[in-house]
Design a protein around this nucleic acid. Structure first.
Lengths: 204, 204
DNA sequence: CTTCAACGATACCGATCGGTATCGCGCGGA
DNA sequence: TCCGCGCGATACCGATCGGTATCGTTGAAG
């Protein structure tokens, strides 16, 4: 009656490490890093503090691991967008913007985990800071590459403009209404790309 | 020898309340809100915890008061920019952007206090949240007004775009180099205004 | 069947948190 | 002159923090 892969109750609980990371994801996103204690994570993960410290050296390392997963998810989304529009960098840029725009309601009132973590972790020696900086660097590099492939005259400048707009939009979801912020954001990015392309009407 | 207005030593210390607010300004900006204890503020202000609680009901109220002062400073800066270019809304918009751009090095590696406070205070009932929302609302209204006076066809849209860019630029100062971010930001805002004005070449 | 490692539970540690109570001192206004 | 209040200092409160030690149990591999 005790087959290994399935348990009658609890519908096959995930292993502790994944339950911990899932709980951390929920709590860190909704309440921030500093306000969430290790005990709270353990309870939400249906385990104990000790189990957490068996899998992660410190709370700071758990935070870093969480952000690594979030960063990997962003990378995957970028890959998918890129694959959906092969050889059409203009569409890829808009796809990235759409990905962010469509995610705005989900992060409503809490903004981007990376931006928030930056605000919560002023110590540049914190292990999570490396994760954040590497992530931002990669995303910027990809965006610059798309702009360059689109033949835009100043890829770094346009990529910076798009980055600023995307981050600003995510920040703005935290207060006030999100009404139409997504559509607004899409039209802004469309305008940026169109304007940047006036002197170089190549692929797109 | 003990004249009231001047003291031989300590070069005329400010009254406790202002010393507390000055200390809070420094510490909250550089280390964030949650990481700074009331005791640390008292020590930097050369006073005691009790003195702080004589002037502020709670730490949360002190945070709100600090943000009220920061918001008032922003308002003053906006007023000055507006007065420097009377009747020239295009120049006013660029003046606002220049104010933010020139402030980037000063907030280097720590970003905007409002954005950071939003990340640190997820509780919408926190007294500081009202201050932040009112501030953002006012700034947005002023920027929309400038865009409208400049005769731009869609003031809300353009104001939103500028707001996003300004906030994104401030966020981006926290990681990586600030090299040329100010100039970059200025050129971006110039481009936004120019593009938005193509169908309405009025004042400017 | 035995063994070993991961797990869950509990109790505990020192440190720090926001906030309070209670002193004594000193200066300014009446 | 004297009163009173703001001030600085100290000690203290309960709660929570990140992190550790030590149990008994369990489940899967050998």
């Amino acid at each position: 009656m005790t087959s290994p892969a399935r348990r009658p109750t609890r519908v096959a609980k995930l292993p502790p490490r994944e339950r911990i990371l899932d709980a951390a994801e929920e709590l860190f996103r909704s309440e921030g890093i500093q306000r969430v204690g290790v005990q709270a994570i353990a309870e939400k993960a249906e385990t104990t503090k000790m189990a957490i410290y068996r899998h992660f050296e410190t709370k700071d390392e758990l935070v870093a691991e969480w952000l690594r997963i979030v960063a990997a998810d962003y990378q995957t989304a970028f890959d998918r967008v890129e694959a959906e529009h092969p050889g059409r960098p203009g569409e890829q840029i808009l796809g990235v913007a759409r990905f962010i725009a469509e995610g705005l309601p989900a992060i409503s009132h809490r903004g981007c985990p990376f931006i928030n973590s930056l605000a919560e972790l002023p110590d540049r020696a914190h292990p999570a800071r490396q994760v954040i900086e590497q992530h931002k660097e990669r995303q910027t590099r990809r965006l610059v590459g798309m702009c360059a492939q689109a033949g835009l005259p100043d890829p770094e400048q346009t990529a910076a403009e798009i980055t600023f707009v995307l981050e600003g939009a995510q920040v703005s979801t935290q207060n006030g209404s999100i009404h139409r912020t997504g559509e607004r954001l899409m039209r802004i990015v469309e305008g940026i790309v169109d304007r940047a392309a006036v002197s170089a009407p190549t692929t797109r």
